[in-house]
Design a protein around this nucleic acid. Structure first.
Lengths: 357, 357
DNA sequence: TTGTACGCGTTATCAG
DNA sequence: CTGATAACGCGTACAA
């Protein structure tokens, strides 16, 4: 019954009308008599004819495809962003294509040429890339891309680039954590991060240092090459092993929950109790964070909302004039047990408006 | 410098050659003199001209886009499959589009019309969908799709459909687990699953029942509506609460590691020790499974390999004749601590060739 | 309301 | 080695 390469001409012939009429029936249901429309529809159904969106896109200069650029879909944060963005695009009749840009890579001309070649309707930059020493390099590349399609980023504004930016206030988020821990009585707090050149680490570190200084908390900075669970596990040995016990931090802020997962295990293997011996907080509330032992106090970045909002803006930019503004989302402190707040009667965090989960 | 809507004609004019020559320079570098090629290249670079792959695809009937159909990219199993498939496609110059088909949904004509409309080069079915009561429904729909593009599945063969199927032997995998637990001395083992109509649950249950019977182990079946961590957490209360302590299973096989994550927490909250009081094993080795407390004994399905192999076959099917065969991958038993093997001197599992991690 | 003719940007075919 | 011409499948003026 259904043949694979039917065109609108075949349908038109079979229905005894012109291809234009078939097109009208299939697209904007306007200016076509009910009877002919009916006849056309029957033929369309009979052959299960599906118009070719490639051809359609060529003519309309709209591919109905959005590109999403991220380092790693296996990271639950990015998976959440992607999922929400995909859903939002889908509800607008568009699909998404994933373009992977390895962690700590720069966005090159070569990379964006793939996007341009495909004539996407827009590009969503989800972060994780590095910003070259000369910021003009990045903005130049992205401006080139912008001549072809609107851009929305899920990271802070890029110097020299006008577009919509929707992102979490990582600096402020870490400050909340430092403040929370300080109120719980911690005087010496470590930040376990990764020596990455992505801004997400830098912002967190900045917030950490600033708030530590403000609250007269002694900051301890510890960096690993990458922020994997395995690295988290081994990092605590290196960190604590390098310090006399008297100089140990009493709380650990870990750059993300994936790494915190490893940190918890490393501590367990060292025979340390959390939070009694040492408090631990994560930084991006993943699905597993409430199932660790003890459940992890962390920051909710609301990845789904970021994905949805940014995609919505991207679709909007495609249909109207591209705008340029920033929208900063406030991470929420999720207080569970790994920070020890439950040990202290929970008063400290409640004052700050954190959420107990 | 770079204008957005340059076409091959503009380049041709500027270079003083015909569009055909520009096309030749850009595609198959054949039959064009070095000097003209050079001149064309200069103009192309000058304007950063990027050919429009939409137009290219229209003529060549190849979109260089592959579709991946899965229920939930946030599930780490699917994220791994997707990631590997994306990489494999990318190395062949193609991109992937995600099509989400909610858990427990059927593949309808309406759904595949989206794929056909886009004229994808192929479709990767990753499982998670239900098979309707009448199997002809499913095969009919997919046969329709096959008239437009090759299909590869990462699930067992679909009755009446000829295509490549690459999938893990879930039934055999669970049998390994039952055997492992039986050798550790367990006589009463529960299977915690979900009342889904997807085959992945059914196969596991089948393997469980068969092997339990063969080894004279008393099977206890417990079903929840969905297999989330939260459901896992509450399920143990329901399961154990419904049984007198003397009838409690001594080991729990959980349908997947996500749910097992919750099971471990539920047990913890009930004050039960794993594995001393009750053993727990998962079923699909996720990244977090080695960081649980205790680390989870589970089955490695090798999602990345499944994703890579299946995409490779899909690309192959696109370029040559579509084949039809099944390739069954053997899950690997990963023995960690939640099963209690370490308590028993590790002999049992070693005999079976499991891997200690 | 309907049909004709053209164009979207590229590549394939053929002639030169 | 190069150029003209005709597709690819569809939407859309414009004319009827």
């Amino acid at each position: 019954m259904a043949a694979a390469n039917l065109t609108i001409l075949d349908i038109a012939k079979e229905a005894g009308v012109s291809p234009a009429t078939v097109s009208r029936v299939l697209s904007k249901h306007t200016n076509v008599s009910p009877s002919t429309a009916q006849r056309v529809r029957e033929v369309v159904d009979k052959y299960s004819y599906q118009p070719n969106s490639i051809a359609r896109g060529l003519l309309q200069r709209q591919s109905h495809v959005l590109g999403i650029i991220m380092p790693d879909i296996k990271h639950p944060y990015y998976a959440s962003v992607f999922s929400a963005a995909q859903r939002e695009a889908g509800s607008a009749g568009s699909v998404v294509q994933l373009y992977r840009l390895a962690y700590n890579s720069a966005i090159t001309d070569d990379f964006i040429s793939h996007l341009i070649e495909r004539r996407l309707d827009g590009a969503l930059l989800c972060g994780g890339f590095i910003e070259p020493s000369d910021p003009k390099d990045l903005s130049a590349v992205l401006k080139h891309l912008q001549q072809y399609m609107p851009i929305v980023t899920i990271c802070p504004p890029i110097q020299g680039l006008d577009c919509v930016n929707i992102f979490p206030d990582l600096e402020g988020g870490i400050k909340k954590e430092v403040g929370h821990l300080a109120r719980l009585g911690h005087k010496r707090i470590a930040f376990i991060g990764a020596t990455q050149e992505t801004r997400s680490v830098g912002e967190r570190e900045l917030g950490f240092r600033m708030e530590a200084e403000r609250l007269s908390v002694k900051p301890v900075l510890h960096y690993e090459n990458i922020h994997t669970p395995a690295m988290g596990e081994s990092s605590v040995q290196r960190l604590l092993g390098s310090l006399p016990r008297s100089a140990w931090p009493t709380a650990l802020i870990v750059v993300n929950d994936l790494m915190a997962l490893g940190v918890l295990k490393g501590l367990r293997r060292m025979g340390l109790r959390v939070p009694e011996d040492i408090a631990v907080v994560g930084s991006d509330n993943q699905f597993f964070s409430e199932y660790t032992d003890p459940p992890l106090t962390t920051l909710d970045l609301n990845a789904e909302e970021l994905g949805q909002l940014s995609m919505r803006q991207l679709l909007h930019a495609r249909d109207s004039k591209p705008a340029s503004y920033s929208q900063v989302r406030d991470p929420m402190l999720i207080v569970r047990e790994s920070c020890g707040a439950s040990l202290s009667g929970r008063t400290a965090a409640l004052l700050e408006g954190g959420v107990y989960a």
